[in-house]
Design a protein around this nucleic acid. Structure first.
Lengths: 109, 109
DNA sequence: GAAAAAGGCAACTTTTTAGTTGCATGTTTC
DNA sequence: GAAACATGCAACTAAAAAGTTGCCTTTTTC
């Protein structure tokens, strides 16, 4: 399947999760592949730990990150396949536009 | 520039705009390259015309669509460069992850 | 085993967002 | 020029999101 691409209803929650600066920062910071604890992820921000926790739950809810408990801390890691799904959705939008432009060009010639 | 990629603060509003099913549908429908009037875009939905108008303004606010007045109607068209910017942001997240994975592999061998 | 560290849970406030209704304005069409 | 069409503007409601505070439980560390 080259152009299955999620339905807008399925993809929107993904973008909504990415559409908050705090959450997008978290995704960015986790994109180096390392798993991090909530405490660690709460360090470089002025938000409370609970606020960060909520954001992580949102990201986990749409599958952008996953968490595992390790002793007294819970580690969050990026789920790259889901990032890829969001990226692919936009790629399919781009491609549809490019195809349309191509057809227009062909028609003019 | 291969990896400029917007800052999370700059990119988040883009994803937020895409993070609503109605708006993502509008983007999808406009991705064929054709410009459409508000009335036209309001046809296949149960929302009121005003609601659709608001969504279009949000999309226009982040540069995902542009509008031009033509007589009594205003036509909205997709702004593919902005879609590309959002896509590229996610691509850079993906790539960062892939690179990290690559280094890990190299280290293990 | 007591103190410190990491986190979970729940109630609550504030702000933002989605959506509506009502009415006014500019354009076409007959 | 009157009716129909397309849109703009503003006030308002309702619901969701972001963030906080307070307190309780589990795990480490000395």
């Amino acid at each position: 399947m080259l152009n299955p691409s999620l339905s807008p209803d399925a993809a929107a929650p993904l973008f909504a999760a990415l559409g908050d600066p705090t959450r997008l920062s978290l995704v960015r910071r986790l994109s180096d592949g390392e798993a991090r604890s909530i405490a660690r992820l709460s360090e470089d921000t002025d938000l409370t730990r609970q606020a960060v926790t909520k954001h992580l739950k949102v990201l986990e809810g749409v599958g952008l990150v996953s968490s595992t408990r390790s002793g007294r801390e819970s580690l969050f890691a990026l789920q790259p396949e889901t990032v890829g799904a969001a990226r692919d959705y936009l790629a399919s939008v781009s491609r549809q536009w490019d195809d349309a432009l191509g057809r227009l060009r062909a028609f003019v010639e």
